[in-house]
């Protein structure tokens, strides 16, 4: 991939890029399908029940059946809804979700783009999806959606800042914003990963990441028991599938980002295990982060809007700032 990226852009190269991108899109869609299936299974097991078992062997085709159902549904748009924005909102939510996946390095040679400002690119694009949510809430012409959209805006602002600031410590330790550099800066043993030196940053990042994903305990914009599905209450059929798709592709993105930033990317936890290919280590850590997100969803109640914002501003942000100072002091005193 590296050589391919360094060559000049010809029609042939362009088509090869397109082919890889489409292949990757299918891989991500496959992930989404089975992430939904595994989420339902894992949450079911935690609640002492089976989860999907009927459609296909062990219920494996459940998500396929669900997606098929969504595709063949009637496309309803409320009469007084703002048509253009209503149609645009899911697209605006989904496109950045997929676009951020470009900068994640999976192995030393398998990546799509090595931007010098990879992390910044990620943070910037992921904020765009919130515009889609707010638009969806507004355009539905429904008060519940409006409240859901407004909550989402408040939540996004409150948690984007701690999210980005918590990784500044990692950036300082690695010396660059490029995600490849950050992974290469971590070593082949788990104590050389960024996890232990940046523990505070990791905790803040995980909490802020769950909030960015709009998942329980921070799923206020779509709080089922209060807002009856919040911002996507008027969406049905494939538009609804787009919102769900965006959420799960973001799960993929955040889990990959966590793996890259804090868990060592393709590095094994112990140096002697490096005969196992890096991609497998990446996938293992990634799966663990995704499982942790499912586990949180099954266990925690939902936090209230004012508590959410006070938590973000009064607790997470100061912690992230303290992390920066401590890291800076450490670098100045020990590494220079």
């Amino acid at each position: 991939m590296t050589e391919l990226l360094q060559q000049a852009l010809t029609w042939q190269n362009g088509l090869i890029f397109l082919g890889w991108a489409v292949l990757f899109l299918f891989i991500v869609l496959g992930f989404v399908t089975y992430a939904i299936y595994f989420e339902r299974k894992v949450i079911g097991w935690m609640q002492f029940r089976h989860g999907p078992t009927r459609v296909g062997p062990l219920g494996l085709l459940q998500s396929v059946a669900d997606v098929l159902k969504l595709l063949i549904k009637e496309d309803t748009i409320p009469q007084k809804a703002d048509r253009a924005l209503f149609i645009l909102a899911p697209i605006i939510t989904f496109v950045p979700a997929f676009a951020v996946l470009a900068v994640i390095p999976y192995t030393p040679s398998l990546y799509f783009a090595d931007l010098h400002v990879g992390l910044l690119y990620y943070a910037a694009l992921s904020s765009l999806s919130t515009i889609g949510i707010i638009l969806g809430g507004w355009a539905s012409n429904n008060k519940y959606s409006l409240i859901g959209g407004m909550r989402s805006a408040a939540q996004m602002i409150s948690y984007e800042i701690p999210l980005v600031i918590s990784v500044v410590g990692v950036v300082m330790l690695s010396g660059g914003l490029s995600l490849r550099t950050i992974v290469e800066g971590q070593g082949n043993n788990f104590w050389e990963w960024n996890l232990l030196p940046q523990m505070i940053g990791f905790v803040v990042f995980m909490i802020a990441a769950v909030s960015e994903l709009n998942r329980t305990p921070f799923d206020l914009p779509e709080a089922e028991s209060e807002l009856v599905a919040g911002y996507h209450v008027e969406y049905s059929g494939f538009r609804f599938a787009f919102f769900m798709l965006a959420e799960y592709v973001y799960v993929f993105a955040i889990a990959s980002l966590t793996t890259v930033l804090f868990l060592g990317g393709w590095h094994p936890p112990l140096a002697i295990l490096d005969f196992i290919p890096g991609l497998l280590w990446f996938m293992l850590k990634f799966v663990f982060v995704v499982f942790f997100l499912f586990w949180l969803r099954a266990t925690m109640p939902r936090i209230r809007v004012d508590q959410l914002m006070s938590f973000g501003w009064k607790v997470l942000l100061p912690l992230a700032l303290i992390n920066i100072f401590v890291t800076a002091a450490y670098i100045e005193l020990f590494l220079k």
Partner: peptide, 16 residues
Amino acid sequence: YLLDIGAMSPFLYAFR
């Protein structure tokens, strides 16, 4: 009550 507050699992335990 817990389901309303957002925690999904106690609902199933209680009904079991």
